[in-house]
Design a protein around this nucleic acid. Structure first.
Length: 247
DNA sequence: AACCTATCCAACCGCCTTGAT
DNA sequence: CATCAAGGCGGTTGGATAGGT
């Protein structure tokens, strides 16, 4: 393999936009492929991580609600550090986020509690929660499927799943130019590119049935849709318009 | 105002699992 | 069945920032 310089470190806004575009185009499964065709000098792994932890449209950003905090505590005591599993029970939260939260908040609290209470080795650190709260599995908003919420429907995603986190996007507006804006840009691009707005659940192959076989043949001679230029034109246009509008 | 410490969180690393060949 | 590549996951790190002295 030709090991061209692989970019590391923080993602730029343009990289984000690029990644979102290509994930929307190809689904969120073939990360190595996306890394290649997008022209991002990132590994597939890195792309996936960025998508899953930051760019996914269903993500909540911001403080955990008390309810979520309680869940994290309860589930952690129940399952241990199975962060991805715990994350599936908190729609809009990622394993990374929960993991970070646990580390900073809960361990400290646990330590404090240990210090203040006399240590009693037979009691678990979560007994109070378990006695005061209903079992996690009976929580009303629980996801029942074990599929992670941030699956967006790559080629393998056959049935559309209900998105229940859309309402969270409003919060993003407070943060200036952010994920939500990126998603708007995608929509703009789609209009310009005649892509359906449901590309995420109905992959690009519906619109370009020949593309898949084309790609199978030409994975080495990477197919890069020239709509990227158009996309970035729309992106720049949108960005300047939102900035002048005082967003 | 300057420095120090604590906290937050994005990103990377390495191991394990899974699926394709 | 064995091998390999890619994806998934948990642990860890390091930079940015907020808060305290």
């Amino acid at each position: 393999m030709v090991n061209e310089e692989i970019r590391k470190g923080p993602w730029t806004e343009q990289e984000d936009v690029q990644l979102v575009f290509y994930v929307k185009l190809f689904g969120d499964r073939r990360w190595d492929f996306i890394a290649k065709v997008s022209g991002l000098k990132r590994t597939g792994k890195s792309c996936r991580l960025r998508w899953v932890n930051y760019l996914h449209p269903g993500l909540k950003h911001g403080k955990m609600t008390p309810h979520e905090e309680r869940l994290v505590i309860e589930l952690q005591s129940k399952w241990g550090n199975r962060w991805s599993r715990i994350a599936r029970k908190l729609p809009g939260r990622t394993d990374n986020e929960i993991k970070n939260y646990w580390r900073t908040h809960m361990r400290k609290q646990a330590q404090d509690r240990k210090r203040t209470l006399s240590p009693s080795p037979s009691t678990s650190n979560s007994s109070s929660f378990e006695s005061n709260n209903p079992p996690v599995d009976s929580m009303p908003f629980m996801e029942t499927q074990e599929r992670s919420f941030y699956d967006t429907g790559g080629l393998e995603m056959l049935a559309p799943r209900g998105k229940n986190t859309k309402q969270e996007d409003q919060k993003e507006m407070e943060k200036g130019y952010s994920l939500d804006d990126i998603w708007k840009e995608i929509s703009i691009c789609e209009e310009g590119c005649n892509l359906s707005s449901q590309t995420m659940t109905s992959p690009i192959w519906n619109h370009f049935p020949d593309m898949l076989s084309m790609m199978e043949q030409e994975e080495s001679t990477i197919f890069v849709p020239n709509m990227t230029d158009q996309f970035f034109a729309g992106y720049e246009q949108f960005k300047s318009s939102t900035l002048t509008a005082g967003l």
